[in-house]
Design a protein around this nucleic acid. Structure first.
Length: 558
RNA sequence: GCGCUCGUAGCUCAGCUGGAUAGAGUAUCGGUUUCCGAAGCCGAGGGUCGUGGGUUCGACUCCCGCCGAGCGCACCA
């Protein structure tokens, strides 16, 4: 029996050969191999005959017969059938499917990994919250989706750099500084002197107290000591930024999320990158002066109106450092960049891309990629919790992790298509009931380890198990499900859609639970016993690998 | 008004990039344990895939119109 791990791509190749033999003139027809929904339709299906019916002006079933006759012989195919309007249904030989068990057990944590990325660099920028307050549930979705994307891309053979960008110098930081300073002087938001756009959350008091106590704060990317001088706005600004960055780092760490690089907006100015960008844009001829302001003709690149670069009063608009930042990413050698951000920022996409095109430095159109997640609605006690950052009334990521747990929070936030709005029902998620799909998956994993523990044998023996007894319908389903896993990773990474992993895991866990209830494992017949134990050990491994892609634990007991 | 995203079972959501009879969970109802973990399993009911056209062998999927929801439309970030 030949060793074929990827039936889908292998079949695609075989049908391509058949196509060249039957219809050489249609050699460029794309070949799609799909998994039929019904078992009666085989393990894989090909619709090539129907695609060729029109150009060849022949009935699809006739073409299908010719294709099958021309299909190279191979021992992993058990039989091939024509069905329906002209589908070619392929049935894989049981022995070929059974091999996946050994494949999984041998590869272990590496099972499912692919090489689509060919080791190339990709940068994923996500969260990128400004240090003006704790992370809220919206950032949490960004963190979960972004982190899972990184794990998926890594599993697909990309060399991933995780980056966090923040603004440490703009208007919002000025507001923050003023708010902390007023708190240092003992004023409260109730006082008439409190600015309209000041920050009112209680955490501002903590920052002020720490500053007055001359504490030293250490974030992942910086460290600063307060000097206790309530009149030193510059010191307060540095301290507040470092303090809130540290708080965010603690939350992110509790969420299992880390970064390789932190980038500051202020550095783009001090390094001269903003100036360089402006000069380049002027030199490329896409700017003009009007009403004492400098404009970029973004309408040349698909924007619906031109954008101001330098304001009448002198400063640059925010999108200039944005362009400078992304140009810098390009210069750092990231031919692929993915920005994960909230959909409320979608209007910046056109502008940033237009600015990059206007630079005229060879950046391709449509660079960089974006993954936008829609808003999260929070439900508590059956009512929607309104988010108001300045008033300080909102659900923090820390609250969620404490109440719901890291695993369930990650799963809930990553298990939905990013394009869909997400309703996060806190009472439901923290109920720890069977409503919670993450427990359903983890339970399958724990159950398997309970059985393996009772067996108590050496797991290495399972590698050598004779797998031929695995031919029940339950077992066929599980074998095929595990065979699908590498393909699921590749598709999810290609679509930048981590939720596909969550969906797959739920299905896999369900298939296992059905199998478990219909079967016994610790049976008398040694050959049958070892084959079944090898099978479920492999299932446990795939569940573990899949959960790892979501950053969720796979406990052996719960 | 313009742009982006969404609309699938009572509720929360999938739907493999155009395939065969649209699927899970939950909720409701009915079964299931002297036996490896019942946080489980088996079954039933529940649908005009928002709506009207179009494209073709074939549409939840692609195109156009309309209805509805969210988010954006600054010389704010």
């Amino acid at each position: 029996m030949s060793v074929v791990q990827n039936f889908k791509s292998h079949l695609s190749e075989l049908f391509a050969q058949a196509l060249r033999a039957v219809a050489p003139e249609a050699g460029d027809t794309s070949i799609t191999i799909e998994r039929p929904k019904q078992a009666a339709h085989g393990d894989y299906a090909c619709n090539l005959a129907m695609q060729l019916a029109k150009p060849m002006r022949k009935p699809p079933r006739e073409i299908a017969n010719a294709l099958i006759a021309a299909l190279p012989k191979t021992d992993f195919i058990e039989k091939v059938e024509i069905a329906g309007a002209g589908f070619i249904n392929v049935f894989i030989a049981p022995a070929a499917k059974q091999r996946v068990v050994q494949g999984v057990l041998q590869a272990g944590a590496g099972y499912g990994r692919g090489h689509a990325g060919r080791g190339e660099k990709v940068q994923v920028e996500f969260v990128s919250a400004n240090p003006t307050g704790p992370l809220h549930i919206g950032h949490g979705r960004g963190a979960a989706v972004g982190d899972c994307l990184c794990r998926l891309l890594d599993a697909s053979g990309w060399h991933v750099t995780r980056e966090f960008y923040y603004n440490d110098a703009g208007q919002q930081i000025d507001n923050l500084t003023r708010s902390v300073q007023l708190r240092c002087k003992g004023l409260t938001p109730e006082s008439p002197e409190w600015p309209e756009d000041g920050y009112r959350g209680d955490y501002i008091i903590d920052v002020a107290n720490a500053f007055m106590a001359k504490e030293t704060v250490e974030a992942d990317d910086q460290r600063y000591t307060g000097n206790g001088d309530a009149n030193d706005a510059e010191a307060i600004r540095h301290f507040a930024v470092a303090y809130l960055r540290r708080e965010q780092d603690l939350d992110l760490r509790a969420f299992g999320v880390g970064f390789d690089v932190f980038s500051l907006e202020s550095a783009l100015y001090t390094d001269g990158k903003v100036e360089e960008t402006v000069k380049k844009l002027i030199a490329s001829g896409h700017t003009y002066e009007q009403d004492d302001a400098l404009w970029l003709r973004t309408t040349d690149f698909g924007d619906d109106k031109d954008r101001v670069m330098r304001k009448r009063e002198g400063g640059y608009t925010y999108f200039v450092p944005d362009v400078a930042y992304h140009w810098d990413k390009w210069k750092r050698g990231f031919t692929r960049v993915i920005n994960e951000q909230g959909a409320d920022h979608h209007s910046t996409i056109t502008r940033v891309r237009a600015g990059l095109q206007a630079l005229d430095v060879g950046i391709p159109q449509g660079w960089p990629d974006y993954v936008l997640h829609q808003m999260v609605t929070v439900l508590k006690n059956g009512e929607e919790v309104k988010i108001s950052k300045r008033a300080g009334s909102y659900v923090t990521l820390r609250d969620l992790i404490d109440e719901v747990g890291c695993d369930a929070t990650r799963y809930f936030l990553a298990a939905r298509h990013p394009d869909s709005q997400l309703v996060f029902d806190i009472d439901l998620a923290k109920a720890q009931s069977n409503d919670n799909p993450v427990y359903y998956i983890q339970y399958a994993h724990a159950r398997i380890h309970a059985v393996l523990g009772q067996w108590g044998g050496d797991r290495q023996h399972l590698l050598l198990a004779d797998l031929s007894p695995l031919e029940s319908d339950y077992e066929k389903v599980l074998l095929q499900k595990m065979i699908d896993f590498p393909q699921v990773i590749e598709t999810a990474a290609g679509d930048l859609a981590p939720h596909q992993i969550a969906v797959y895991l739920k299905d896999l866990a369900g298939d296992f639970h059905s199998y478990y209830n219909a079967s016994r494992f610790l049976v008398e017949d040694e050959r049958v016993k070892l084959s079944r134990l090898a099978m479920i050990a492999a299932v446990a491994q795939v569940i573990k690998n899949g959960l790892a892609l979501l950053g969720v634990n796979a406990p052996e007991k719960m």
